[in-house]
Amino acid sequence: MAERMQFEYNVDGGNFTRAGFASSEIKKILKKLNVDIGIVKRTVVATYEGEVNIVAHAYSGTIYVDIDTERIRINLKDEGPGIPDIDQAMEEGYSTASSQVREMGFGAGMGLPNMKKNADEMHITSEVDKGTEVEIVMFLNNKE
């Protein structure tokens, strides 16, 4: 493969009919690059959860994908309400999702914990009333 590949996808806040589109495109790319299937699976889970978080909570966002021979770096950046207490947001079962979102089966407070479980590294920064940035890193050469 090329030494380095970069892609980006826009995500609309509130548009659940398109939720998962970016994750699906990223999955296709990783499979085409013959990335180890276990890494593809973990990347897909983490990316999908991040994509749904943008749809469920933010006004708009962008998913930046940066792949080189060492690692996959995915940066999910949104303009939105931000997260006042990141530790609380990371707790399983804690969610601020609306009742509509919950009726669809989202908003169980499992999204961020699922991301953390599946990513090799995860970093969150957030500013209230501005937005949130979640970066996940998957290492390609140690298949733990």
């Binding site: 749904v52 499992m110 999204g111």
Partner: peptide, 26 residues
């Protein structure tokens, strides 16, 4: 719960649910 399926279901499984919206297919 969609995140539960996302996190815990495996390839090749049949998913039993009452959710009918498009995200199920995603």
């Amino acid at each position: 719960l969609l995140s539960d399926v996302m996190g815990n279901a495996d390839a090749g499984e049949i998913w039993i649910t009452l959710q009918t919206h498009k995200n199920v297919m995603a």
